[in-house]
Amino acid sequence: MRLAQNAAVISTLLFPLLSAAAGSFSCEHIRVNKQSFNLKPLGGAKSVMHHFENHNTTYTVDICKALGKVKDIPAEEQCPNGTQHGNDVLDEVYPIAGELKEKGGGHMEPKWERLKDSTSHEDSTKEGLRVSMNGGFRKLEGGKNRGQKAIIEFVCDKNREGTEHLYDPEDKYTEEKVKRDEDDGDDAKEDPDSPSLQFVRYEEGEGDVDTLRLRWLTKWACEGAKDEQDADKAGHWGFFTWFILIAFFSTATYLIFGSWLNYNRYGARGWDLLPHGDTIRDVPYLFKDWMRRVLSTIQGGGSRGGYAAV
């Protein structure tokens, strides 16, 4: 990603899946304390921006798979493969969370928590879930690495898909817009024009790990949303089932009514009861004759014609 001179920092948040050995998770099947969630509709690269000291920092996240390399951007200006979360800058690049095989990287170790089960008083009125992920690192002066961590809080908002008013992963927004979106904070639900994915804070210098916190407003974090998704899928299969049933009962009604009519009008018995009984009775023979013709055509397809060599 190219940056303007007055915005020297771009951060990139990437969420690849863990390997099976590391305890992988699927964004489509998340179960936390007997509650199931499907966050697949939030998949794909999504971005949020933070403004600080004349710098715009863009965080980009894909919760379902790792973000791929960006074309036309030098490799040294991109995060390493397997990054869960990273900081992509003009003069510095470092991953924040992910399943990293690079030297200095670690395991993602995702931990999910229902907000209702949290011991925090602030979470008591919220509905949704929270995930924390590790594995990132930042190279400091002197060659030392500092650990990085990302925490995303998915908050239930029945009026949002979770993809509304998101930033593009480019540094092209004004300082005023970024600061206005950040000032919305917890009042974002009341502002329909605020981004669904929001920057909360970046905790730097506390302990041995720096932590990025994001908030994501979406209806897919509501408890019971997965049941509605499953019901919608069942509804599509139900339509097909009803179509088969209607066709079956229509055919059965036609045969029964036709048989009754033939019995009362003509005194028919046996096969003669069925409407078009002769045709129905001949179906097996017609099918057998059709198959014989098909096989004959296939077997005769390699002949050289009606002329013999002299």
Rank of each mutant, 00 (worst) to 15 (best):
M1W: 02
L18Y: 06
G23H: 02
F25K: 01
S26D: 15
N38F: 03
L39V: 00
E53L: 12
D62M: 01
C64L: 02
I73P: 00
P80K: 03
G82D: 07
Q84N: 02
G86N: 02
N87M: 10
V89F: 06
D91C: 09
V93R: 05
I96N: 00
A97F: 07
E102S: 14
G104P: 02
G105D: 09
W112C: 05
T125R: 12
G128H: 05
V131P: 00
V131M: 06
S132H: 00
M133D: 02
R138H: 11
L140V: 08
K144S: 15
N145Y: 15
F154N: 04
R160G: 05
E161N: 01
Y167L: 01
D168W: 05
E170N: 10
D171S: 11
V178D: 09
R180Y: 03
D184Q: 13
G185A: 14
G185I: 02
A188L: 10
D193Q: 12
S196Q: 01
V200F: 06
V200I: 14
Y202C: 06
E206M: 11
L212N: 05
R213Y: 14
R215M: 05
L217C: 07
K219D: 05
A225I: 02
A225N: 05
K226C: 00
D232S: 12
G235L: 13
W237I: 15
F240K: 13
F240C: 04
W242A: 14
L245K: 06
A247T: 06
I256D: 08
A268R: 10
L274S: 06
G277R: 01
I280M: 12
R281M: 12
L286E: 10
D289W: 10
M291K: 15
V294C: 11
S296V: 07
I298A: 10
G301I: 11
G306F: 10
A308E: 10
